[in-house]
Amino acid sequence: MAAPGTADFRTQLQDWLPKLVLAPSLAVTLLFVYGFILFTIVLSFTGSKMLPRFTWVGFENYEKLFALPAWHTAIANIAIFASLYIVICTAIGLMLAIFLDQKIRGEGMLRPIYLYPMALSFIVTGTAWKWFLDPGIGLQNVMRQWGWESFTFTWIKDSEMAIYTIVLAAVWQTSGFVMAMFLAGLRGIDNEILKAAQIDGASNWQLYRRIVIPLLRPAFLSAFVILSHLAIKSYDLVVALTGGGPGRATEMPATFMYSYTFTRNQMGIGASSAVIMLMTIAAIMVPYLYAELKEKK
């Protein structure tokens, strides 16, 4: 047995060890996440151009930001993109999950096909869809060659419609994932409830509308949170698919932030746009995470 002094030291060390091991992670998070957030917030109130400078300008950057047509385009685009993306992904995901749940033969083959796009980089997805939607070589050309001479599909070159090609590619990438979330939810529903409702004479439609879908509430919430978070962060897909064009028609907050900060040397304005993005995501995530953590306690 060790002397009492060393034993004390050992127990003390054992008490402190967990906190010591955790400390670097906490420090890194505090510095690289929260410190950096603070730094960017401060920058958004300065007149920084190419490099950070600490000349206080108050809300000038925010005023400029909201006066910029490019920012208005970005906001309008994210609103269109996020709402369509979330609604369509949820609808397709829910439909596929319900269909797959009907004792489908070959489910084991279909599920991975629906899900594999989630493993790809948005740059790969963007490249594939960019050329597939290209009027010259892609879908339009294919249809014409197959004999539909008047077929026209030029969305990707059309500044009014290009945003919808981003929705299409993004839905392609993530709707299978939403399917998996709903399928897990469906598989967790107690069959006894369904059987009881069937005995009461409920039709399949009523069964789903009145019982199953309400029971999937948690899956809806998770899908909404994860999809809105993906939507606001969408940068790569826009870059790869349309490059923000034609012109600046598919500018999004993420591409706006990047170009104002790093290519147009308007760091103050870039920082203020990043702050707006963070606030939007936080408004969705913080209540959700808070509720999740509280439940656990």
């Binding site: 998070t29 996440v33 950096f36 978070h229 606001i232 907050p253 702050v275």
Partner: peptide, 14 residues
Amino acid sequence: LFSCFIPFQIVLIP
């Protein structure tokens, strides 16, 4: 946990 969900644009400059 919250750090998983921040838009990375907020940390790019620093």
